[in-house]
């Protein structure tokens, strides 16, 4: 995985509670056996006016001002539902490297880190304020510093966020998780032997 420390990018708003993984990527796209190439399938049922891939003009992410966004701003319990890692894959393929919300579903949250993506939890009031700011100025960007654990607004305000230190270190170093665990293979073998 590529080390991930800083990110500055356009913020796109998705103003919905409990966005589930069936909305992030519907099941018909889970039949593929590849790990990439999911960008056109992201938010498929909301994003297109019909199955003909015609963009739905009412879906906010389709607005020209949000093209090229790398930070998604959304609401509580984002990513609830299934464990499909296709959800973070699709978000990543589309260009989102970070998602900001007041809360995330558990499995989705972990899946993000396993793909070098950073879900950031900010309190509801701050998220509300960011929604207002994003809508108020076209080309609104945020700067994320993972090491410093801050999200900085265009006005220079640095908003701190919490993240588990180990998860943070994994992103900063781009660690291969399996490789890291396999360094403790002796401990795994010892555990297996002790239980026999």
């Amino acid at each position: 995985m590529v080390p991930f420390n800083k990110l500055a990018g356009i913020v796109a708003p998705l103003e919905a509670l409990h966005v589930d993984t069936d909305q992030i990527i519907p099941k018909q796209f889970l039949k593929r056996i590849e790990r990439t190439g999911y960008e056109d399938m992201l938010f498929y049922d909301w994003r297109y006016a019909s199955d003909g891939m015609v963009p739905n003009p009412d879906f906010e992410l389709n607005a020209p001002r949000y093209q090229g966004a790398s930070i998604l701003l959304t609401k509580d319990n984002f990513g609830c539902g299934s464990s499909r890692e296709h959800a973070p894959w699709a978000l990543n393929d589309y260009g989102f490297r970070s998602i900001i919300a007041p809360s995330f579903a558990d499995i989705f949250y972990n899946n993000c880190f396993n793909n070098g993506m950073l879900p950031i939890v900010l309190d509801s009031a701050t998220v509300e304020r960011l929604f207002t700011e994003v809508r108020a100025s076209e080309g609104y960007t945020l700067s994320i510093d993972i090491e410093a654990q801050t999200v900085t607004t265009p006005s220079g305000e640095a908003i701190p966020f919490e993240v588990d230190p180990f998860l943070r270190d994994r992103l900063l170093n781009g660690w291969d998780q399996i490789g890291l665990t396999l360094r403790h293979e002796d401990a795994i073998t010892a555990y297996e032997n002790a239980r026999r």
Partner: peptide
């Protein structure tokens, strides 16, 4: 018993363990 993502499936296949908090 709980659900895991595909990266974790790979982790379990390779190590028979999972990283958990």
């Amino acid at each position: 018993a709980h659900g895991i993502g595909t990266s974790e499936v790979e982790h379990v296949l390779a190590t028979q363990t999972l990283l958990q908090r």
